[in-house]
Design a binder for these strands. Sequence first.
DNA 1: AATCCGAGCAACCGCCGTCGA
DNA 2: GTCGACGGCGGTTGCTCGGAT
Length: 314
Amino acid sequence: MGRAPCCDKANVKKGPWSPEEDKKLKDFIEKYGTGGNWIALPQKAGLRRCGKSCRLRWLNYLRPNIKHGAFSDEEDRIICSLFARIGSRWSIIATQLPGRTDNDIKNHWNTKLKKKLLGVAACQIKLPPQQQAREQQHQQPAFPPFLAGVAPATPQLSSCTLPQNPLLHGLGEFSADPDIFGSLLHAQQTHYHPMKDGVVLTFEGDQCCSSASDGSLNQITYGRDEGLGFAGGARQMGLESLLYSSGIGDNRWKESASWEKQPSADLEQLISTGGSFFSGESSLATWSSSKTLGLGSLKSLPTLGREADRFREW
DNA sequence: AATCCGAGCAACCGCCGTCGA
DNA sequence: GTCGACGGCGGTTGCTCGGAT
């Protein structure tokens, strides 16, 4: 079964467009329009291309008034702001940036903005006294040993920006409860409040259980009493929703002392100044979109399942 | 000079929603 | 109500190029 292909795969050309093909497509559309039928267009235009390919080429490159080149700060700000609100709805974001295509914005996000915002890997853990002593004694990085295989060899602790971040400021009170991983996660229902309840641990590394090709940022959020939360799912939830679902998107987090120190800040400002409280990783997104994740779910994810066991041991 | 590696970007893939027969 | 065709979209891939080694 399966759907019939939209074109004869054997007879269509793939890969980069030549200037001649561009000219044919441009001339045809300018003369006749698309006719509302992209599938039939390549044949009419004398192109050995799939209709979808023609559509993409036109929309992303040949169409008039397309803006190429570097994104301005203002454009960056808009993208970040909208991403925080609606997630990876690139086509909608593109409507707010005249001349920019969804593909352009998506690429820009994936190659620049995501790293700019999320690359601020942060890790602030206040270990129990015994553990602190152990860490000092062995001159090891201050996070659970099980993360040694997950965190990069040189974790970017030096670039920690938590103190400047109203949302993240004050995090770091971490009670090393070995049962955390065993607790059930109610990702969408938790009242977890990182300001009061736990720690946000963020790290970079290519061994994290991430399906992203760049293996960029992964984030784990611990709740001291209420289980383990995986902060993610920017696409499904958007940052604002994510914060809500985590219990920090409501006004409670604004009531915290650290927030009051910066009363003028708002969510958009947080984003534009480098908030790093979300992740667009698709794998994490999938998990966090589940209503409930228990240890069983974690174990089904190879890497974290293993880490969960190690965390228990630790 | 050759090779490696990562960033950037164009293009492809496959899923989903809509619409008309 | 069902099914197929199509457009739209987001995720991903793979090529190119420039800088580092």
